[in-house]
Amino acid sequence: MPQLTARNRHRVAFRLNGRQVEALAENRMLLSDLLRHELGATGTHVGCEHGVCGACTIQVDGAPARACLILAAQIDGADVRTVEALAPQPGRLSVLQAAFREKHGLQCGFCTPGILMTLDAFLTTRPDASEAEIREHLSGHLCRCTGYATIVAAALAAVEELRKEQKENA
């Protein structure tokens, strides 16, 4: 029965953005801090640190989740995606990211990585998402700049573009 002691650091192994990674973490370390401080993945932002603001939202096994409400020790063996995974290659944006740029879906950009990870997960499973459903998913995020209107517009533009792509590929 592995009982990990409080004072030592313990090995955590998981997939991060398609690559197998390992790090050492104290039991009390949050996944948000593991990503930023140990693995250098600073695209994930930290806002409230108690699950309210949504800035640190990432994907765990395909579903959006708060990195600040997950202990590093809980992530062993999981598949984690952060905002760094979205762009298909350096210098190119994903459809969703391009729509945010096009529709001014961000101002200061602090909340954006979390919102992108929620919408990316949602639109992957539901490419026919309605505005109401998009708004419901966005309700787990705080943005103090945009008033959300341009974020919704960007998400709807991405839906439109993804639909077009799907038709072309069909």
């Binding site: 029965m1 592995p2 409080a6 004072r7 104290e26 039991n27 009390r28 640190e49």
Partner: peptide, 21 residues
């Protein structure tokens, strides 16, 4: 803020959980 320090148990069986509790 960050959590205070604690030991962390990843049990293999429910008996281990109950024993630790």
């Amino acid at each position: 803020m960050k959590p205070p320090a604690f030991d962390f148990l990843r049990p293999d069986t429910q008996e281990e959980v109950l024993e630790t509790l």
